[in-house]
Design a binder for these strands. Structure first.
Lengths: 205, 205
DNA sequence: ACAACAAGTGAAGCACCGTTCAGACCTTCA
DNA sequence: TGAAGGTCTGAACGGTGCTTCACTTGTTGT
């Protein structure tokens, strides 16, 4: 034998892979899935096209990885806030919607890509899966709210799906135009108020 | 001169065009935009590929026509119900959501294509435009509701966008699986209840 | 130093699909 | 009926972009 991967090489490979995913995420956030060609991504990552295929078997696999990482972060943050954000379920829902909307508006390009932009089938399937996860975390806090008598009886899954869709829809239009600080300031509280009504929380006094 | 289009020929051409649009709509409802190739559509319409290009300058133009017709019907029906459905704004909103959801579930494939399925850019742009129209009709009935004192103060545009997104999201998952009569029966009233809460209508007694 | 093998390269290959066009086939009217 | 001009056809074309692969460069252990 005359060659074995040393840890140093393995680290370098892992780092290259990370850089590739990061660059691909940036490209997608910038130009959307449709225009994120393998050539463009490779260039952004500072490697050749061929090298991309040493890290991922296909473009679709890379796209799925990009989507999973970015969406995973979001659903995790949202889940944490909704579960352990402090206060009663209604307060946590308030905080969750606020955080989610803020994060989306801070990274508009990526949010748009994750929520709405046309994507290849593999990513579309992944999107459905993550919507299910968003629904699950919303549904849980709603269940707690009804159990605590803070929210009226309802099908938590339906309300959760509605929240997912409503927040996405409200954000998509603002997301597709350049930043409008003033409008955003107005949007978040309005979005929170709508979400609370949607879940049936008693109007703030 | 030796040839002039007779009315009969014009009718035949118009009919062929209609058949093409109808066939394309069916194909899209069946397999989605991504798999609706010109070849497949032409075959479904019983004509050759070349003939398609005598009716539309490009595939995109045909797709836009298909989308516009189908979505146009829906937004028109919804608008009529919300404007002239009878009763106060809250009753009209109730009826509107019911009608919209029922229609979507009766024609799942098409609804999914119109609301959610990945589509080429031209259709995507059209979709944004129609969402704006959905929002406008919802916003109007909400404005009337707040003016009549039936709904609390709110940004009607935000609530309208939320309703559009929420209903779409709630329907999409049921839409992507085969019919489940029982679940559907449960879904529509739940959707209506959620929509009324979302707009802030006083809970039914 | 050198053999052995892995990683990296990027131009060529290839598949897919929208679009075209030269010719076949109709319809009209003198 | 025949000339003029329209409609229809579908194989061939061409652009796009993913994927491959023969080759170069880099790394390891003897």
């Amino acid at each position: 034998m005359a060659y074995r991967k040393t840890p140093a090489v393995q680290d370098r490979l892992a780092a290259a892979r990370e850089q590739l995913v990061a660059a691909a995420t940036a490209v997608v956030a910038e130009v959307g899935w449709a225009n994120a060609s393998v050539t463009a991504v490779a260039a952004a990552a500072g490697m050749s096209v061929g090298t991309v295929y040493q890290h991922f078997p296909s473009k679709g696999a890379l796209a799925v990885e990009v989507f999973r990482r970015a969406s995973g972060r979001e659903v995790e943050v949202l889940g944490e806030v909704l579960r352990d954000g402090g206060g009663d379920p209604v307060q946590r829902l308030t905080l969750g919607v606020t955080v989610f909307a803020r994060r989306a508006m801070e990274n508009r390009g990526l949010a748009h890509a994750l929520l709405a932009a046309p994507a290849e089938p593999a990513v579309g399937a992944e999107r459905l899966e993550f919507r299910r996860r968003y629904r699950a975390v919303f549904a849980e806090v709603i269940r707690e709210g009804t159990a605590a008598g803070l929210l009226p009886a309802q099908d938590p899954e339906v309300t959760a799906a509605a929240l997912t869709g409503a927040i996405g829809e409200v954000l998509v239009d603002p997301l597709s135009v350049p930043a409008e600080g003033a409008a955003a300031e107005h949007l978040v509280p309005e979005l929170v108020a709508m979400s609370l009504r949607c879940a049936g929380a008693a109007p703030a006094v």
